[in-house]
């Protein structure tokens, strides 16, 4: 049989399916099945034991959109995600640039910066709480002695600041690793050439390094937004519990709270779908508008 160009075709259908089967099985059992159940639940009102399930159509969604508090959650989640992403990426970039210049060979120091990533969100939350709880936080008590009005228990702004800082701190190390790898992939000759042409460090960073980090930054942007939307409920739970007055009631935390504490399965499932739609829409936006400006050359 002659092989012409790319037209290599397997005969028979069984073999490819057989080879795909393990992967598909894992996907089906751990993703499609539960996700499908979640979508179905969103249209039902059930008691947690599932002894009784009533089809309610779009009622679960209507109840959400009719609640001003739910819209508050949507807006504050967007603000939280933007702030967390911006903070964790800019700090990580600054650290990576510094590390790239000074610590090129120090594996130990580079490894140390990665540690926070290994800390579970709930533990990270507790660490920050021990520093900033107004009744027993070491730094909070110091702030109070200095006369700074710090009270995340009643001031929504302070509480938001605290969870943004904790969530960003945890993600800095992840971003750092990618930025550092990106920086080290830039050929030294390119930087040297720019230096010979008379470009100072700031200029080289702006016109050479940052554009070359474009693909890395874009990847991190997508990952950080997803992190901020989905993986931060442990931090909220440990630090603020959604308070004060709902000022840190992130969408994902509400999904967890309503579903796994209040046993309101229908609403929790509907909220997951809304959350998923928001993140998918944001990711599409990022790919359409941000990625166009990224050069992979």
């Amino acid at each position: 049989m002659a092989i012409r160009g790319k037209d290599v075709v397997f005969k028979g259908r069984a073999l490819p399916w057989l080879l795909l089967a393990p992967q598909l099985l894992v996907l089906a059992v751990f993703f499609f099945w539960p996700a499908g159940r979640g979508i179905v639940e969103a249209f039902f009102l059930s008691d947690p034991f599932l002894d009784r399930s009533i089809y309610v159509g779009l009622d679960n969604f209507r109840a959400l959109f009719a609640s001003p508090e739910y819209w508050d959650s949507v807006w504050l989640t967007l603000r939280f995600s933007a702030a967390t992403t911006l903070l964790s990426m800019s700090v990580a970039l600054a650290l990576a640039v510094a590390a790239d210049r000074v610590l090129r060979r120090s594996l130990l120091l580079r490894s140390l910066v990665i540690w926070p990533y290994a800390v579970a969100p709930a533990i990270a939350g507790m660490l920050w709480l021990f520093l900033f709880h107004p009744a027993f936080g070491v730094l909070a008590l110091a702030l109070r002695d200095l006369g700074v009005g710090w009270n995340p228990l009643l001031d929504g702004g302070d509480a938001m600041l605290l969870i943004v800082a904790a969530a960003a701190w945890k993600q800095v190390s992840y971003n750092f690793v990618f930025f550092l790898a990106g920086l080290q992939a830039i050929p030294a000759s390119l930087i040297e050439a720019a230096a010979i042409d008379g470009a100072g460090p700031a200029r080289r960073l702006r016109d050479l390094v940052l554009p070359l980090l474009g693909p890395t930054s874009f990847f991190l942007l997508v990952m950080n937004v997803i992190y901020a939307f989905f993986e931060t409920f442990g931090i909220v739970d440990a630090i603020t519990g959604g308070g004060p007055g709902g000022a840190t009631r992130l969408l994902v935390y509400k999904v967890y709270k309503d579903g796994f504490q209040a046993q309101d399965l229908g609403s929790s499932a509907a909220q997951s779908i809304v959350l998923m739609v928001i993140v998918v829409a944001l990711t599409i936006l990022q790919f359409r508008f941000v990625e166009k400006r990224v050069s992979y050359a």
Binding site: L153, L154, G242, G243, P244, G245, G246, R249, K257, D258, Q261, A262, Q263, D264
Partner: peptide, 12 residues
């Protein structure tokens, strides 16, 4: 649980 959450938020 949700109602207690509401009471807490509004009290704050």
């Amino acid at each position: 649980v949700q109602i207690d959450e509401i009471l807490n938020e509004e009290m704050e």
